[in-house]
């Protein structure tokens, strides 16, 4: 499989895979989804679609979690 170029949290990254779920697995982000969310090109990809949402060359990815805040 050929790799695609992604930007994850502002950092250019090469990724050999197709789906959001495989990217999360590759990055060792827990898949239970509790407290985690992901946006691709400024659009939220809901957990229910992590296994079917296909990533494309040039996608901008943001992965976030809940942290202590005021």
């Amino acid at each position: 499989m050929s790799s695609i170029r992604l930007t994850i949290a502002g950092e250019p990254t090469l990724f050999e895979g197709r789906y959001v779920c495989s990217l999360l697995e590759h990055l060792h982000v827990p898949q239970d989804g509790r407290g985690i969310a992901i946006a691709v090109n400024d659009v939220v990809v809901p957990k229910s679609r992590w296994s079917e949402h296909e990533l494309r060359e040039g996608d901008h990815i943001e992965i976030v979690k809940a942290v202590q805040g005021g």
Binding site: A9, V64, V67
Partner: peptide, 23 residues
Amino acid sequence: TVAVRRYNLQDQSSESILGLLRS
């Protein structure tokens, strides 16, 4: 209240705020 920030891909050791608060 909690904040929402980039997931730290380098350091995943810290306990999550949700875990601390007991769901």
